[in-house]
Design a protein around this nucleic acid. Structure first.
Lengths: 348, 348
DNA sequence: TTGTAGGCGTTATCAC
DNA sequence: GTGATAACGCCTACAA
C-alpha cells in the first residue's frame, strides 16, 4: 500500500533507524548513507506517516475545534482566525460542528480527543465544567465564548451583556421609547447574557418592552418581526440578539412597507459583514471574533508548551457600531453615518 | 497518561482481546465478562484511540479538504456543505487552507495525506494532474472547481464560462453598451474561465470593453472601479469576476456619487448572501456551492467504498440572478425585482 | 556511526 | 469463549 521506512531502508541498504535519523536529524549520519537515504526517499516518494509518529510521541501536531456551527459569516470569520493562528504555529486544524446538540457535541469531542493535542471549544449551550467532564483532563482545552464555572480553566470570552447594554442605551438615547427584543436560543448562555444586557440597559429608564422568541436564525427573526408588528401599541424599535435575526426581521419590515428607522429602528449583534451591505445598514455590536479565535489558539499553544500554567478568563469588552438602522436620516450627516463612508471591507 | 485497553482489561480481570471484542462486538463474549468490561470502561472513562486503530486498519474515518481559503461567505457555504455531508457519512472533516500558494498547498496535502481516507481538493491555480503527482495515487481524491486534464479522475465542477457568458448577454440586452471587466487572479483557472465567458458573451455584438486587473478581493475591486471611472469614454457597466470584487467596486462607485445602475451597472459572480443585502442588490451568477461541496463528499465516500470505479467529471450549469444593480428602477416592477420581494435567507 | 529490539494502543489470528 | 501474540509505521534506547 503506502511506502514506509522499511522500503526506504531496503532501497538505501541501511537500517530503518538510519532512515529515521536522516529524516529527523536526530543523530549524525555519514555523508554517504545520508545521500543514499535521500535518494531512496525521493525515488519512492516517501512521506512519513504522522499517525504512526503521533502514536509514539503522544503529539499529533494537530489542534481541534468544536463549534456550534461552521456556517454563516460569523463562523467564517471565526474559522479564519483559528486557521491563521494554527498555521502560524505549524499546527493542522480539525474542526467539528456540534449543531448545538449535546450528543453531537459529545461525539465530536470523542472523535477529536485522541487525534489532537489540544482543543478550542465553543459551547454556549454548555459550560466549561460539563465539557471538561467529557474530556477528563486528558488534554488542554481553551474555551471560546463559553461560560466558565470552574477554576484553572482557560477561556477567551467577550462581554455579551455589556455590549448589548451599551447598544440598548444608544437606542434609548436616540429617542426610541418602546422596544421589542428578539431573543436567541433559550439554552445558549451568550443569548441569555445579551438578553440580560438588554434588560439592564432598560432598567433605569421606565421604557416599555416585550421579548419575543428567536433562535439566532434569520427565519425566526422574520417571524418575530411579523408578531412584533401585529402587537398594539407597536414598538418603535426592534433589538435582535444577533445580526442574522435582525436581517430576517429587516426583511419582514421592508415587506410590510415600513421605513427603517423612521417607522421602526433595528439593531443586531456580532457586526458581521452583511450589516454594512444591508439597506439600511445595521447598527450592531462589534465582536472581533477573528482576533479572539486567534487568541484562543495562541493560548492553547502556550498551554501545550508549558502544561502546568494556571487558567485565566479573558473578557473582551465590545464596542457598538452605529449605522443607519438606528439613526434618522436627518441626523446621519452630523454623526458621519453614511453607507459610502463606512469602509466596507477593511477590518474595522 | 491516557487510559488504554490494558487498563480496562486489568480492572475487569480479562484479557485485552476480550475488551476489544466487547467494544467492537467482533465475537461473542460471555454475559458476565461483558458486564465487567462495560463497568470498567465506564469507571475509567475509556475511549478507544482512533489513531492506534487507524494505524492497523488503514482507515481513519476522516476525510480531508484542501481549499484556497476558508474565509468569506463563499467558503463558509462550501464548508457547510462539506461538513453536512461528512457528518451524514459519519466521517470527521479536516480542513486546510492553501492560500493559493503552491508550497502551502503541498504542505497541507502532505499533512493530510496519511491522516485521512480521502481528499476533496479545490485548487483553481493548479490542475488535477499536478495535485495527483503529489498525492501519488495513494488515496482517492475528488476535485471541486479544479481543472481536470487527466483521465479517470473525479471532479465536481461548475460552468464558470457559461455562467459568465449568460450574465454578459443579460447586461448587453439590458442596454449597457460599454463594459468594463474586473478580472480574477491571473493564475486561477476559474477566473480565466469567467473571463472567457465574458469575452464570448461579447463576441457576436461589437460592444467595446476593457479588462482590469483584480484578484477576487474587495480591495482590488475598489481600486479597479476607481481606474474604470477615470477612463474616458466611461463604461456604462462593470462586470466583476466575483461578488467580492463587485462589492468593493460598488463602494467606489457610491463614494464617487454615481448611481447604480443608472450611471453604472454592476454584476458579480457566486451569489453570496451579501448580494441580496447590498444597496443596490447585486446581479450575479448563482453557484450552489453548498450542494456541490456535499456532492463532492458523497462522490468521495462512494470511491472509498468501491475503489475501482472510473472517474467522471460533473459540470454543473449555472443560472443568473437578476437584481437591482443591472435593472433600471422603472423596469424593476415589470420584472418582479425588489429588495423586499426577494427571499433574503431561504436557499434560492 | 550504525543496527537491533522494544513499544506506542489497537485489532486480528491463532491456539486452547 | 478466551487469552497470548503478532502486526500497523515509526522513534529511541541500547548495544556494537
Amino acid at each position: 500500500m503506502s511506502v514506509t521506512v522499511h522500503d526506504v531502508a531496503r532501497r538505501a541498504k541501511v537500517s530503518i533507524s538510519t532512515v529515521s535519523r536522516v529524516l529527523n536529524g536526530s543523530a549524525p549520519v555519514s555523508q554517504e548513507k545520508r545521500e543514499r537515504v535521500m535518494e531512496a526517499v525521493e525515488a519512492l516518494g516517501f512521506t512519513p506517516n504522522p499517525i504512526a509518529r503521533s502514536l509514539l510521541k503522544h503529539k499529533t501536531g494537530t489542534i481541534g475545534a468544536v463549534l456550534p456551527y461552521i456556517t454563516g459569516e460569523f463562523f467564517a470569520e471565526l474559522l479564519c482566525g483559528l486557521d491563521e493562528a494554527a498555521h502560524m504555529h505549524k499546527q493542522v486544524l480539525m474542526v467539528s460542528a456540534s449543531h448545538r446538540l449535546e450528543p453531537e457535541f459529545r461525539a465530536a469531542l470523542q472523535n477529536l480527543m485522541h487525534r489532537v493535542d489540544g482543543l478550542v471549544v465553543m459551547a454556549p449551550e454548555l459550560d466549561a465544567r460539563q465539557v471538561l467532564s467529557i474530556t477528563g483532563q486528558r488534554l488542554p482545552v481553551v474555551f471560546l465564548n463559553t461560560h466558565v464555572d470552574a477554576l484553572g480553566v482557560f477561556a477567551v470570552n467577550f462581554d455579551n451583556r455589556g455590549g448589548m447594554q451599551a447598544l440598548t442605551e444608544h437606542v434609548i438615547s436616540a429617542g426610541y421609547d418602546r422596544i421589542a427584543f428578539i431573543k436567541g436560543p433559550e439554552d445558549a448562555r451568550d443569548a441569555q447574557e445579551r438578553l440580560h444586557g438588554f434588560r439592564e440597559g432598560l432598567h433605569q429608564k421606565s421604557i416599555p418592552y416585550q421579548e419575543y422568541e428567536g433562535d439566532f436564525s434569520a427565519e425566526r427573526g422574520y417571524d418575530a418581526a411579523l408578531r412584533i408588528m401585529r402587537t398594539v401599541p407597536r414598538s418603535s424599535a426592534i433589538m435582535a440578539a444577533n445580526d442574522l435575526s435582525a436581517l430576517g426581521a429587516l426583511r419582514a419590515l421592508l415587506e410590510s412597507g415600513l421605513r427603517v428607522p423612521e417607522d421602526m429602528a433595528l439593531t443586531g449583534f456580532d457586526d458581521i459583514p452583511s450589516t454594512r451591505f444591508s439597506t439600511p445598514s445595521l447598527s450592531s455590536v462589534n465582536v472581533p471574533i477573528r482576533i479572539l479565535a486567534a487568541r484562543a489558539v495562541h493560548t492553547l499553544v502556550d498551554c501545550l508548551k508549558k502544561p502546568n500554567t494556571n487558567g485565566f478568563v479573558h473578557l473582551e469588552p465590545l464596542t457598538i457600531k452605529l449605522r443607519e438602522s438606528t439613526i434618522r436620516p436627518d441626523r446621519r450627516a452630523a454623526l458621519g453615518i453614511s453607507p459610502s463612508l463606512e469602509n466596507l471591507f477593511k477590518t474595522s
